[in-house]
Amino acid sequence: MNERILLIEDDVNQQILYEQELVQEKYQVVLASSAQEALDYLKKQTFDLIILDICMPGKDGIEALSEIMELNNKIPVIINTAYGTYKENFLTWSAEAYVVKSSDLTELKTTIRNVIDRNKAGVD
């Protein structure tokens, strides 16, 4: 059974890149271009992981995170952003991990795997 990942990212080209890479890793990827779109998905479906961009037009990632937690705090969230500066205090946002965007997606992929596995273990 493929794990379902909700990718919240406004940049179309990045959506394409991430989708292409994650599908190759056998994940099922659902794309959301804005925080609002993501929340709509979360009301109907369940996911194994959420990848969240911070800098988005409209509701930004930080706002989105607290709403996501209100809706379903069981799903782990990985923050993936171009800003390196938020890394130190990401814990207060109750995200599982913080990955700075990079053209090398290895770190992201490793983190996804770890978070999903850890979460599964914790739940069981």
Binding site: D11, N13, Q14, L17, Q20, E21, C55, A82, Y83, G84, T85, V100, K101, S102, S103, D104, L105
Partner: peptide, 21 residues
């Protein structure tokens, strides 16, 4: 400079990502 770093990182992620792929 901070903004620019952010702004530049986004396209670089994509460019690098695709080139990598």
């Amino acid at each position: 400079a901070a903004h620019v770093a952010h702004e530049i990182r986004n396209p670089l992620t994509t460019i690098g990502g695709f080139a990598h792929a």
